[in-house]
Design a protein around this nucleic acid. Structure first.
Length: 269
DNA sequence: GTATTAATAT
DNA sequence: TATATTAATA
């Protein structure tokens, strides 16, 4: 039914970024420098203490036209975009990114939050092995600011993970992702493990993204990636648990997870 | 010429 | 380690 196609996105949207989980942070994610460079004014954050309930993450970041990438306070001493505010008096040979066009700015490392990863996995799942290539995945994910390289890199790791996926005892003898006939995704077991539920065996071989029913949450709380997943998405425990001694990873970036076809990926002829 | 991938670097 | 970047190549 076509109707489903319509709902498809809504459902997806709903199950995607939990407002609470998505940006519990109150820190401005844009470096002052960057903000200035792009002439971006920090989006208004709803009262963090009020965003519970049904608050749909409707808050779209201002219609930024540039790489609307929201940076987590990347603590790295990137020689590139070191905050000019404190640029060590040392004769910094670098002019700073403020001068450079946004296009050439070096983005900070992408942090694959569980939400992002979920989108990624969903995309891969519905694309099927055949089409699950960086470009396509990226498009399906529709996360603005996300680059093909980002996806490619993650995909590489994801594949490695699938390969090492335990439990595939070779009774069948089929390779980890050897199947491909109709666009199957990977071993059911693998897929199941990784998807941790939200990715039902309904993927279609074709693009016409369909509305498979995805339960946004499992057991009440969204099942974070997966326990077995050695891809260490561990630090992101949203629900539960406890904190880690390590510094909490900024997870607010890419909050604008709304679909919005990338303008930056403009493909040259 | 682009896109994907493995390898490598940070 | 996780992600980026490069290099090879389809």
């Amino acid at each position: 039914m076509i109707e489903e196609d319509t709902n498809w996105f809504s459902k997806w949207e709903e199950q995607l970024p939990s407002p609470d989980d998505l940006m519990p942070i109150s820190q401005s994610l844009i470096t002052p420098d960057l903000a200035l460079a792009f002439d971006i004014k920090p989006p208004m954050f709803p009262s963090p203490s009020q965003n519970h309930g049904h608050l749909r993450r409707d808050m779209r970041v201002p219609p930024i036209c540039v790489p609307s990438l929201i940076f987590p306070l990347n603590n790295h001493n990137s020689s590139e975009f070191a905050d000019s505010s404190d640029l060590g008096g040392s004769g910094t040979p670098l002019s700073g990114p403020s001068d450079e066009p946004a296009r050439t700015l070096k983005r900070p490392r992408l942090v694959w939050t569980p939400q992002l990863h979920k989108r990624f996995v969903d995309a891969v799942a519905r694309l099927g092995i055949k089409n699950a290539v960086p470009k396509t995945i990226m498009q399906l994910m529709s996360v603005d600011g996300l680059t093909r390289e980002n996806v490619a890199s993650h995909l590489q790791k994801y594949r490695l993970y699938l390969k090492r996926m335990p439990g595939l005892s070779g009774s069948g003898g089929k390779g980890a992702l050897g199947i491909n006939g109709g666009g199957k995704v990977v071993d059911p077991a693998t897929d199941h493990l990784f998807a941790s539920g939200p990715v039902p065996p309904h993927f279609l071989p074709f693009l016409p993204v369909a509305p498979m029913h995805q339960h946004p949450q499992i057991g009440g709380v969204e099942a974070v990636v997966h326990p077995h997943m050695q891809m260490q998405m561990n630090n992101y425990r949203q629900g539960g648990g406890g904190h880690f001694g390590g510094a909490a990873p900024a997870n607010g970036q890419y909050e604008n997870l709304h679909h919005h076809f990338p303008g930056r990926e403009a493909q040259p002829s």
